[in-house]
Simulated assay, not measured.
Amino acid sequence: MNNDPSQFTLYSGGHRGAEAEFGKLAAKYGVKEVNFTFDGNMLDRDTGMRVLNQEELEKGNISMDIVSTRLGRSFSKGNRIRKVIQSIFHMVNNGYQIFVVGWILPDKTVKGGTGWAVELGKLFNRPVFVYEQDRKAWFSWVDNDWKMATPVIHHKSFAGTGTRNLTDDAAAAMQDLFERSFK
């Protein structure tokens, strides 16, 4: 593959775990990096930090009831989780391909707040890929189901997010994804 990494941009959040790892890989391969955050949020990785103001956060202000309904579970009504959900909107809205690390649940959603990035990706009809940490494999959302896949970053803008509890297998799979995409 003849991808010039400097022409690609990772949109992420810079948090511990999957997001920090996506950022380290972006830096290693020469991919541009934008990490969305908000005032008062602590990041593990602040390269390309983009602090969203209140007006920008509002653009991602999808009702927490919709989030809870879509994911089939309730989330705290707290201000911090709302801002996290709002910042995830900006990651997915800017990244055409969506790469996530976490756990696919029996109802086909993805565990935790990470699941909102997946649901937004589905709603926006974007290519969505999840590295499932228990099954140690990548899956793609195709025809309303998860199918095993070997993803490649081929779009110039992509989002990377996921669990804060990254396994060694997942980190290796992420490394392989970047190697496959930019070698």
Rank of each mutant, 00 (worst) to 15 (best):
residue 126 R to I: 01
residue 114 T to P: 08
residue 55 E to I: 07
residue 147 K to R: 13
residue 72 G to W: 02
residue 82 R to G: 07
residue 136 K to Y: 05
residue 71 L to W: 02
residue 12 S to Q: 02
residue 25 L to S: 02
residue 1 M to E: 12
residue 42 M to W: 08
residue 138 W to G: 03
residue 82 R to V: 07
residue 91 M to S: 13
residue 137 A to S: 14
residue 171 A to M: 05
residue 126 R to S: 00
residue 28 K to V: 09
residue 53 N to M: 01
residue 144 N to V: 06
residue 7 Q to D: 13
residue 41 N to Y: 15
residue 76 S to K: 13
residue 103 W to S: 14
residue 96 Y to L: 07
residue 121 G to I: 00
residue 72 G to I: 04
residue 133 Q to Y: 03
residue 15 H to W: 09
residue 66 I to E: 14
residue 15 H to F: 09
residue 92 V to R: 00
residue 167 T to R: 05
residue 160 G to N: 01
residue 178 F to A: 11
residue 9 T to G: 06
residue 68 S to D: 11
residue 2 N to Y: 08
residue 165 N to F: 15
residue 155 H to Y: 12
residue 141 W to A: 00
residue 127 P to L: 05
residue 71 L to F: 05
residue 89 F to E: 01
residue 159 A to D: 03
residue 46 D to M: 08
residue 127 P to K: 08
residue 41 N to Q: 15
residue 36 F to A: 03
residue 71 L to V: 05
residue 6 S to Q: 14
residue 170 A to D: 10
residue 3 N to V: 09
residue 43 L to V: 11
residue 148 M to L: 13
residue 109 T to E: 08
residue 97 Q to D: 12
residue 54 Q to M: 06
residue 114 T to Y: 03
residue 129 F to K: 02
residue 10 L to N: 02
residue 7 Q to V: 04
residue 160 G to Y: 00
residue 49 M to R: 15
residue 177 L to R: 02
residue 136 K to C: 10
residue 46 D to F: 05
residue 4 D to M: 11
residue 106 P to K: 10
residue 149 A to M: 03
residue 100 V to I: 13
residue 130 V to T: 07
residue 36 F to I: 06
residue 64 M to D: 03
residue 1 M to S: 14
residue 101 V to Q: 03
residue 132 E to D: 15
residue 103 W to G: 07
residue 145 D to W: 00
residue 104 I to S: 05
residue 136 K to R: 13
residue 106 P to M: 04
residue 94 N to F: 06
residue 90 H to P: 00
residue 30 G to L: 02
residue 106 P to Q: 04
residue 137 A to T: 06
residue 144 N to C: 10
residue 174 M to S: 04
residue 128 V to H: 03
residue 95 G to P: 01
residue 76 S to N: 12
residue 138 W to D: 01
residue 94 N to W: 02
residue 67 V to M: 08
residue 183 K to Y: 11
residue 19 E to P: 07
residue 26 A to W: 00
residue 156 K to I: 05
residue 73 R to K: 15
residue 15 H to N: 11
residue 168 D to S: 14
residue 25 L to K: 09
residue 35 N to Q: 11
residue 151 P to N: 02
residue 79 N to W: 05
residue 171 A to W: 00
residue 96 Y to A: 01
residue 11 Y to L: 08
residue 114 T to G: 09
residue 20 A to Y: 10
residue 39 D to E: 15
residue 34 V to H: 01
residue 178 F to P: 07
residue 124 F to L: 12
residue 93 N to A: 13
residue 48 G to F: 04
residue 138 W to K: 04
residue 120 L to S: 07
residue 16 R to I: 09
residue 78 G to F: 07
residue 95 G to E: 02
residue 150 T to G: 08
